[in-house]
Design a protein around this nucleic acid. Sequence first.
DNA 1: GTTCCGCATGAATCGATAG
DNA 2: ACTATCGATTCATGCGGAA
Lengths: 308, 308
Amino acid sequence: MGMIREDSRSTQASQRGLRRHLDEIVHGDCEDVLKEVPEDSIDLIVTSPPYADQRKKSYGGIRPDDYVEWFLPKADHFFRVLKPEGTFILNIKEPAVNGERHTYVIELILEMRRRGWLWTEEFMWHKKNSYPGKWPNRFRNNWERLLQFNKQKQFKMLQEAVMAPVGGWAKNRLANLSDTDKVRDESRAGSGFGKRVANWIDREMVYPTNVLHLATESSNKQHSAVFPVALPRWFIKLFTEPGDIVLDPFIGSGSTAVAAVELGRHYLGIDINREFTELSNRRVKKTQMRVPSLAERRSTYYGDNGCQ
Amino acid sequence: MGMIREDSRSTQASQRGLRRHLDEIVHGDCEDVLKEVPEDSIDLIVTSPPYADQRKKSYGGIRPDDYVEWFLPKADHFFRVLKPEGTFILNIKEPAVNGERHTYVIELILEMRRRGWLWTEEFMWHKKNSYPGKWPNRFRNNWERLLQFNKQKQFKMLQEAVMAPVGGWAKNRLANLSDTDKVRDESRAGSGFGKRVANWIDREMVYPTNVLHLATESSNKQHSAVFPVALPRWFIKLFTEPGDIVLDPFIGSGSTAVAAVELGRHYLGIDINREFTELSNRRVKKTQMRVPSLAERRSTYYGDNGCQ
DNA sequence: GTTCCGCATGAATCGATAG
DNA sequence: ACTATCGATTCATGCGGAA
């Protein structure tokens, strides 16, 4: 445990079982795949597992009442492979069942604490564009939980990496810039908007809060990613350094791997659905081709957590 | 239960024990005071009880580990006095203790369900002005829970009363228009943009979500209420009709009573701290003097839940 | 009258110090 | 070792006075 700083570089990647899967998206049950991953080797786990669902489907068909039992053995594996100073971010939200919010998420928190996890924080994801709909006894759900678990009270956290422009007009100006605008302004090294952003970093940046304001990525042509890349990106910047290893055991459409590649981190993705692994592998490959420029740009700025 | 509509008017107020305290803020322990309130007589309970605290103080000195035990007998009283179709809104948030979020809130949810409550929904209060500070392992807390409990699956809910103008959405639409579009629109008819926005606000109303964006009234020198009036106001409009009865058993600076008066509902406030009851009684008196005009104005509009 | 600047004010949390 | 107290840190908001 005294060699944390050295471990956090890619020396860990040379370990046998891990090297086999490093920077890959593997098809399989994460419980099986993780058996081949050495203990204390992962810097960050960030994932959005299949939510509990009433009806049986090929993917994500866990009944709410069975969810805790289904999840706990996997959480044990996560505990084993996570570095002592690493972090586990779990995106989850209980559905309404029988007119009530189901209790499996809060039961899961209690059970994970009994198994050694620390429930360090609960971030709130405000989903700015939520699913439409109307019910007589309920409004649309517009938020999800981002549970932070750790193995010990001292964990790696790089708060400066996610500082955001100070509140008010500055934030709105930035939020309204499109990605292409950002690229254009950065590239024209001169008196563009990007340069002024750099000035603000020195003076007018504040630490964020535990509320994240992000829109879901709506209808991306290929895949319907409910887990927007900005979400893993934020936590990867916060809890890892370049060269560290990020694990997503339910990687779905690959957002976590995309974010890891963009930020120069290693990734290990797992999914039990073969189509998803193939899809996300293609998506990550595309990212890797355009990443050299992105890696530098994104690491300098891109530090907002949405609006407010 | 078949006379819900009649009961929801002030006929209930004629019952003996209730009439004694109606439209008053009473000094005492809510467990004692509520013994004098008949069962099934309250339409809405909305409250922000003292949060658990490490240190002992005169007000709010409950230790986190003792909180569930302290709260449950009170919750039993709330259950008794609440009408079958009534709602209980509980504003609460767990502090960080020993590097972790304490679990007493989620334990309380589980215990209240065992005692017959339905955990219908969890609204999220995004506190736009959160307490400052910086710590090595944690960001500032920027949200609190608003737990909704009910006695039965069918409860009174008047969704139209809290519909909000599309405001933010309209603004974003405008912001995303190209510059040339803006110029063209501004040049047109002089008055231009602002007027169009106003038209949209008047016309397009949408149902809110389960995320509320409100700032605390901390900077208010008269009464520094961490529970802003807008919060009880929103739930009173959503879950009661004019003439209904609202209970706040930990009324503090009186925000719930102020909102009830503004909206033409009866209130019953309780607080164990005598200074608070006197303060909030004065505050409510002031509200009652200016309310006749307010009641009409507020009931027509004032329906936003913050930014969005 | 507007706009702008300064200032007080928080449901906070951690780590150190003291009993 | 365990518990109570204290200092340091930090930012959105609304008020009041000034330009």
